[in-house]
Design a protein around this nucleic acid. Structure first.
Length: 945
RNA sequence: GCGCGCUUAGCUCAGUGGUAGAGCAUUUCCCUCACACGGAAGGGGUCGCAGGUUCAAAUCCUGCAGCGCGCACCA
């Protein structure tokens, strides 16, 4: 670091060190290492994605944890990889197919489509990985996994077969969330409820047994009337009790004869008689709740829509072939024509939307594979008991609530890209041309090892022995059915229960230590991983879960590609450097709060790096060997102060990181390094370092002389060396504290400053990332160097005096670059060093120490614990302005005094409060009183002039 | 409807019983030989509202309001 530039230029530095780290294999997680393990598995980004700010936040947190753990002497495995993202990838591919070739996936065919998907994965799947590298992520890239790797896929199949054999997986015709756009079933979690403005339509139906009597029904979906197979009322509702058991005449389809439209009026508790008219139309085939009603009452379920939510012939001639929304309008018109429509009123209700395709889902009766969650009780308990910790812990409640109400999971998807369901059916040509699964025989919990086979159904990891005779289930599994195995399937798990004793990776790194993820996927992923962990490893998959906030823009909007409000992190990195992006992100991400991203934060990070760079540059320019011995006898009070502040910062940062309070750690680092180290310590070192300590004769006035002063030049040189040693000590620790957040610049400076030379090869000799994490200074150290906490106060008082002195300048309108003569009247002895420091920090021309100084009245004076500082005014100042200022100050002092006196005169206060508090108040009172006296005098002085 | 979170300086947020804090923005001064991606000194808050507990409340309790987010079969 011989010739260093004035500003830090991250670009070259970052790529250089990243390559170095990779070459030296520093990120490798060694399963055979004797060090204690620390493991994180990355939440695998989708292969369709490009890096956005959410990833940056998430990855930066993980990297901070991983790097900190390395410095703590842990064997770190941060396992990276990507997710095939079945449905998301599907959508992207289909969209592209349509756009570029005007083809559907069906035109292409399954095989070709999957080929394309793999092509996409090869082309785009690694983009995000490259971007993570730019950010400095210290993942073990040699272990990168993909959820559709052959070994991984095999695990997925094994788990399917196992859960099937255990009776957790079953096939059934149920009401599912059907996405008419992607033509697949979805899980409950993939449906978002969104408010929709629409109308509530009231229509009447005639009671068959009582001609001329009508019941009025309110509905938001008149187009489903042809599918109604009952009218329901609440059994307790007196208004309608008489009709129960009778029949209603359904108005639609209008062309049907009356007898084909008779539907029973039934009683069901589900009906809320507060809502609408208290009469419910029951459409078992197109509404989840109605389906259940239908089940209870053995009602037929009449499907009146096609899979893509077009009305079919059963909907009647008027609506057949229409899209469901167009059909709604037609149905209303038809009801109007028939005279059935009573009224329509504007209404807002919540409608389920397909999360991916952004269209309203259609509840639909469909035969699908379902999973009854295994190990759910255990999974619920481990969080409730605190065995597994959530940060912030309020998510534990959310998790618990969900775990207490879980429904079976629909795991089959009518898609092609993904893990194909390992079930085969014997080819038969049945009457209806379909393939049927045998009912009743696919028994549960059979002891069949591995494959399960009956005469017509085969469930196995490998295809059946005579594949020609069988046909595989066309569906694939929900993406999350593979992701939930991530913490162990990525570690070479082979699908056997428990940890294989030959699998060193699992033995060493499972359970993992921390999981860092977004709260949005707590159900999708986190909960399911916990269940899978217990079911297959017999143990929780991770000990801690840290939930990051959601990254929003300045206006609080969620960042998204469609809004275009997400800056490209790569642009930011190019502009400000990766460290700056990390620092800015971390500093603005308080525990569990959403992050409002602002480029200003990154700018702050860049500025911080620049400050760090320049502080080190300053140290470099002083010359001298790095990290010499510190001589306790030569420690100036400023040095003791900064060492104590360092000690405090170490504790605070360590504690904050242990509690996942990243922004708190960031603030501490910022404050310590910028305010304490640079603004005060570094400045206070200048008199020693830059030979400004040569004082005029006034320097030693007012205090006892050193009995045996060493020869001037030599003493000065030794003092200088010692100060540099302290500076190196502090900087070396600071770089280490900063390394998890700022990996690149700290590595550069670690070497540039030569701090690696003193370290053992494997502990910081090659890289700062293995340098030991700073520990708070122990008592022996403090004792040896005389680091008593009182130095904090003593030096704080000194700096406070400086601030006051600077304030005098400002108040008298004297620019800081103008040297001023100060006179100091100390209360006690002032060490020569302090005189030097005061003089430099005040930019004083001279600092005269006088014990018996009698200031002219009106001389600007600063009062402090150390004494009074005067700034005699030679030149002219505005008397009136000065008077006004003093009067204002006086007013404030009087107010404060009254406040404190009130408290001290309150017997209840005095009686109950600890003495320390009382002392503080008394001190405050006397401080203000002193100030009051001074102000009065000064005011009088001005008046006399 | 139930649950959760938020409400503190112009903005973004720290602060869980003892004199209201940070960063940004703002004002004034300074290109002083580490750094103008900088330095110095300021200004600026009845801590959402209303009660309560306490000698003392931004902090604990109750209620209310506004915003946001989950969950839920109100058609």
């Amino acid at each position: 670091m011989s010739e260093i530039s004035k500003t830090y230029e991250p670009q070259a530095v970052e790529s250089k060190w990243y390559q170095y780290w990779l070459d030296k294999k520093f990120f490798a997680g060694d399963a055979r290492s004797p060090k204690p393990a620390y493991a994180i598995v990355i939440p695998p980004p989708n292969i369709t994605g490009v890096l956005h700010m959410g990833h940056v936040l998430n990855a930066a947190m993980q990297d901070i944890l991983a790097r900190k753990a390395r410095m703590d002497g842990k064997e770190v495995l941060w396992l990276p990889g990507t997710d095939h993202a079945s449905i998301a990838t599907h959508l992207v591919l289909e969209r592209e197919l349509k756009k570029t070739e005007r083809l559907t996936r069906h035109d292409l065919g399954r095989e070709k489509f999957i080929e394309r998907a793999w092509g996409w994965k090869e082309k785009h799947g690694s983009i995000i990985i490259q971007q993570l590298k730019k950010l400095g992520c210290s993942c073990d890239w040699t272990r990168e996994r993909f959820t559709m790797d052959p070994e991984y896929s095999r695990c997925v199949s094994k788990v399917f077969v196992d859960l099937f054999n255990k009776g957790f997986i079953y096939r059934g015709k149920r009401m599912v969330n059907w996405c008419p756009a992607t033509l697949t079933a979805l899980s409950d979690e993939e449906v978002d409820m969104e408010p929709q403005k629409g109308f509530l339509y009231y229509f009447k139906v005639e009671v068959a047994e009582q001609p001329g009597t009508f019941l009025t029904i309110a509905t938001t979906r008149p187009e489903t009337i042809p599918g109604d197979t009952a009218i329901a009322v609440n059994p307790k509702d007196p208004r309608y009790a008489a009709f129960i058991g009778q029949h209603a005449i359904r108005p639609l389809p209008s062309e049907l004869p009356r007898e084909k439209k008779l539907i029973p009026i039934i009683a069901d508790e589900h009906v809320d008689f507060e809502f609408g008219t208290g009469v419910l139309k029951v459409t078992p085939a197109h509404d989840k709740a109605d389906f259940e009603v239908g089940q209870r009452h053995n009602l037929p379920a009449v499907e009146i829509m096609t899979p893509s939510a077009m009305m079919n012939d059963l909907a009647g001639a008027d609506m057949s072939g229409l899209d469901r929304f167009a059909a709604r309008k037609v149905a209303v018109e038809k009801l109007r024509e028939l005279g059935s429509l009573v009224k329509e009123e504007p209404y807002e209700n919540k409608v389920g939307f397909s999360q991916r395709a952004r269209v309203p889902i259609e509840p639909r009766l469909s035969e699908q594979w379902f999973l009854k969650y295994p190990s759910a009780e255990q999974a619920r308990r481990c969080v409730a008991s605190g065995e597994m910790k959530f940060h912030p812990d309020r998510w534990a409640k959310v998790y618990d609530h969900w775990m207490g109400n879980i429904q079976d999971w629909c795991i089959s998807r009518q898609l092609w890209w993904g893990h194909r369901i390992p079930v085969w059916r014997r080819k038969v040509t049945s009457e209806d041309g379909g393939l049927k699964m045998e009912q009743g025989e696919d028994g549960r919990g059979n002891s069949l090892a591995g494959a399960h086979s009956t005469s017509s159904v085969y469930v196995g990891v490998d295809p059946p022995p005579d594949p020609e005779a069988w046909e595989q289930d066309p569906d694939v599994l929900d993406t999350w059915f593979s992701s939930w195995l991530w913490p162990f399937a990525t570690m070479g798990w082979t699908g056997d229960k428990g940890i294989d004793s030959k699998n060193e990776t699992l033995k060493k790194f499972y359970p993992t230590t921390d999981l860092v993820t977004a709260p949005e996927i707590i159900f999708f992923w986190v909960a399911r991983m916990i269940m899978a962990g217990y079911e297959y490893m017999g143990e929780m998959p991770f000990r801690n879960v840290y939930f990051t906030g959601i990254v929003r823009d300045k206006l609080g909007q969620k960042m998204s590609k469609t809004l275009g409000n997400s800056p490209d992190p790569l642009d930011l990195i190019a502009k400000y450097g990766a460290d700056a992006v990390r620092f800015g992100t971390m500093r603005s991400a308080p525990l569990g709060q959403d992050v409002l991203f602002d480029e200003k934060d990154v700018e702050l990070g860049r500025n911080f790096c620049n400050k760090l760079w320049n502080a080190c540059r300053f140290r470099q320019m002083q010359g001298g060997e790095a990290q010499g011995e510190i001589d306790p006898g030569r420690l100036r009070s400023d040095e003791k102060w900064i060492l104590l502040k360092l000690d405090r910062a170490i504790s605070e940062v360590t504690d904050s990181l242990a509690a996942y309070k990243f922004s708190e750690a960031g603030q501490t680092l910022y404050r310590f390094f910028w305010s304490e180290f640079c603004d005060w310590y570094l400045e206070a070192s200048k008199p020693v370092l830059q030979g400004r300590s040569r004082q005029g004769p006034e320097a030693d006035a007012g205090q006892p002389k050193d009995p045996m002063p060493p020869p001037a030049g030599a003493a000065e040189e030794e003092q200088r060396t010692n100060t540099l040693a302290v500076m190196d000590f502090v900087l070396s620790h600071t770089l280490r504290l900063l390394h998890p957040v700022l990996p690149f610049i700290t590595e550069e400076l670690w070497h540039g400053m030569g701090y690696e030379h003193d370290m053992p090869e494997n502990q910081g000799g090659q890289t700062i990332q293995f340098a030991p994490w700073p520990k708070p200074l122990d008592q022996d150290f403090k004792g040896f160097y005389g680091l008593d906490d009182c130095y904090i106060e003593i030096v704080d008082a000194k700096y406070e005096l400086v601030t006051q002195g600077r304030n005098l300048r400002r108040e008298a309108n004297i620019p800081f670059n103008k040297k001023v003569k100060f006179i100091f009247k100390p209360v006690g002895a002032v060490p020569p060093n302090d005189v030097d420091v005061l003089k430099v920090l005040l930019n004083a021309e001279t600092l005269e120490i006088t014990l018996d100084y009698q200031p002219k009245k009106g001389t600007p004076t600063a009062h402090s614990e150390l004494g009074e500082l005067f700034m005699p005014l030679e030149g002219l100042i505005d008397l009136d302005a000065e008077k006004a200022r003093l009067a204002k100050e006086l007013e404030k002092a009087a107010l404060e005094i009254t406040k404190v006196e009130q408290k001290l005169n309150n017997p209840a206060f005095v009686g109950k409060v600890p003495t320390t508090v009382l002392q503080e108040h008394q001190k405050r009172l006397s401080d203000w009183q002193a100030k009051q006296t001074y102000l009065q005098k000064a005011l009088e002085g001005l008046g006399e002039k």
